[in-house]
Structures are given as C-alpha cells and as structure tokens.
Design a binder for these strands. Structure first.
Lengths: 207, 207
DNA sequence: GTGTGTGAAGGGTTTCACAGCA
DNA sequence: TGCTGTGAAACCCTTCACACAC
C-alpha cells in the first residue's frame, strides 16, 4: 500500500461526515464541487483524494452518496467498532465518555481509568473509574484498541509508556506534550491550547 | 507582514510550551537540536521557523530559554489575556470552563451560553450558564475576544452566524462541521472524530 | 453536455549543507 | 570548535486543464 498523506486521510473523514449529512437529507447524488463547497476546499482536491483509493464516481454525473459513504467507511475502517479506553478522570476525560460523535462512528468507550484513589470507583456516564495501575489486565479484559490520554501534561509520557506496555497501538493525546512511542504505535494529538494560541496570533496580527 | 504558514504558528506554540518546561527545570540555554527533540521534529525546522520572526540565538551557543520564551510570547500575542466565551453547556462546553491549560496561557473564560432553557441559570465551575439569545449584549458586556463553539453539529453554523453578528472575530469550533464565515473572521477546528478516524485508518492498514 | 479521473505544472514547506559568528 | 541562520535543493501537496466516459 502506497503512503497516503495525513491531510488526505483527515479530509476523507470530513467527506464521510458530509456524505452522512447529505444522506440524511435524502440526497442521492453529489458532485465533487458540492462536496468541496461543504468542506471549504476545491473540487480538484476532492477528486484527487478519492482517486488515491479507487474510482468511485460516474463521469458527467457525480457520486452516489450512499455507495461513496460505504467506500470511505471501508477505507477508514469504520465498518466495525473500536474499543476505546480513556485515561484521566478529570473534566476532559469524563466529558469524552459521553461524546455522541464517538458513539455514532463506532468508537465505544469501554473503560475510564485514573490513578487518583479519590476518583477510582466513581461513576461517570455509566462507567466506573478504574485503577490505572491495573491497566494491563483492564486493557486485555476489555480488548481495547485505542487509548485516549486526558491527564496533566507532566504525566502524559508515563501514561503513554504504560499503555504501550499494555499493548496499545493507537493513542489520541489531549495532553499538551509530544509523546515518544515505538514506531509501531500511532499517536494523534488534540491540542486545544495550540489552536487557541493560533487564534491569539491571528487576532494580534490583523492589519 | 509576510504570510507565515499555519504549521509554523502551531510549532511556535509548541516551542513556547517546551521552553516553559525547560524554564521550570531551571535550564537556561537550549539548542535547536534539543528543542526539536522535545517536539519530535528536526533542528533545521526549528531554526527556520524562528528565522521568520527574527534572530534569537547565539551561534555556537544556542538560545536563552527565558528570552526566547518572551519573544514567542510577543509573537503569539500571549503577553496579554483574552476573554473567551463558550457556546454550549453540554459535556464538552462545561469541561472547557475549567481547563487549566487555558487559564495558564491567559485565556479567561468569562461566559458560557446555551439556548436550552433547562440549562440556563445552572452553575458551572463558578459561571452561570447564560441565555444564548442575549449573545450580543453578553459579548459586549464581557468584551469577548474569542468564542468556542461546543454545540451539536447541526446547530454550529447558526451559532457561528450569531457570533459573527455579535462582532466575534475568532472562533474555535469543536462541532464536526465546517463553518462559513466572513473573511475577517478566523476559525480553527478541534475535530476529535477526525483524529479518531485517522487512528482507525492506521489500525486498519498496518501491514 | 457534464463532471470525473489524472498527468503535468505550480506552489509551498521541509531538509540539506555550509558560511558565518560567538 | 559548536551551533545558528539561511540560500538552495528536494520533496510533497495542491491546483490546473483536459481527455474521456456516461
């Protein structure tokens, strides 16, 4: 499989959501132009992105919304569900246990963990906060595929290390710190402070 | 001012945080190599990024952590505080009112709004959820600089429209939907489903 | 006629490599 | 000597433009 760029993958995920919207509105056919408009990019970009994975459209016609959605579902691995564990029983971690967009896309939160004795045992949206020291057993028991790190920055690397030992291969990190992991582990970042600071920059430098 | 790429700005924000870490550890000097290592990039990239804004280092020596941090603070506009409003009293919105990283960087949450009568008036980390219908007055009263959208996807555009009318020029959007705004308004996205789906893709396509 | 699929061109960002300065 | 600052080269991603299929 040839290497496909991160930005293409991210856009695929957006097309997927846009198609969902169109299907909700009973739209059966869509052009690359419309899809581009919905996502704020160019139609050439849409066609190029899709072309990396195959040919899904009909010339002079466009794409069938339902079948294109199915195709993207397959490409992104969304035809199945994924078991997700959250590390960190703070504000962010607890909020994510009930994030509807995750459920809708088949990401099932199976587990929330913390190392703080005061939090362990507490209920969060139907889950009990478990002891992070038991991460190995818990990850195995719940067959976790993806871990979300939502702990203070200073603890993030230690948490990641333990997740790697427990066999986790995919991490979404909310802590504002870059993580070092073995090459077979994928990390994605959700760095809210970075985006806020980008806004700060743009506000400060408006001419 | 010449156009500086988004990725450079984002990395500046990371350097800023890495420098903070070093200063905490009483480190006074840092090389582009070390900074690169901390952020998982190359030293050439670090030097190139910084060079867009000026020359901050000493050849054969490196950068003074404190003074470089000050410089980046100025570049990003972080020498001051920003007043922030959150729209959406759901899980995410409420969690963000108490996000320590925001406070630390001078983003002060002044306001949380919702249109749901059942939520209006409720307390969240010391703030009262206000009626989003009064957005114009509230934004003016609290002198809001930045708005965070944390409402369901289907309402995001309507909320954005009202924020624009209220005079907001910078938006951080957590709803998984691309927003249309006038050219003088900057929108950044925090799309957690996109990152999860990227992880799904990588898990599905490991050789 | 219409809109896709795609080589080729263009533009922008990253990496290289080294001159230059402490 | 050691590390920065930076043109030039390399690379990658986006846009163009049009042949082609429906």
């Amino acid at each position: 499989m040839k290497k496909i760029s991160d930005s293409t993958i991210r856009r695929m995920s957006k097309y997927f959501r846009s198609l969902d919207q169109l299907i909700d509105k009973r739209v059966e056919t869509v052009s690359s132009d419309t899809l581009a408009e919905m996502d704020g990019i160019t139609s050439a970009q849409v066609r190029k992105d899709l072309s990396f994975f195959g040919t899904f459209g009909k010339r002079g016609f466009g794409y069938n919304t339902k079948s294109l959605k199915k195709q993207i579902e397959n490409i992104l691995g969304l035809y199945r569900t994924w078991n997700v564990a959250i590390v960190g029983g703070g504000n962010i971690g607890r909020a994510l246990t009930d994030y509807t967009e995750f459920k809708k896309q088949g990401f099932i939160i199976r587990l929330i963990m913390d190392k703080d004795g005061a939090k362990i045992g507490k209920q969060v949206h139907g889950l009990t906060i478990e002891d992070f020291n038991k991460v190995n057993d818990l990850v195995k028991r719940e067959q976790i595929d993806i871990a979300i790190i939502a702990v203070p920055a200073d603890n993030a690397q230690a948490v990641a290390d333990k997740l790697v030992v427990a066999g986790i291969k995919a991490i979404l990190n909310f802590a504002p710190r870059s993580l070092k992991v073995p090459p077979d582990v994928t990390v994605k970042y959700e760095n809210m402070a970075v985006e806020m600071e980008a806004l700060s920059y743009f506000l400060s430098n408006k001419k």
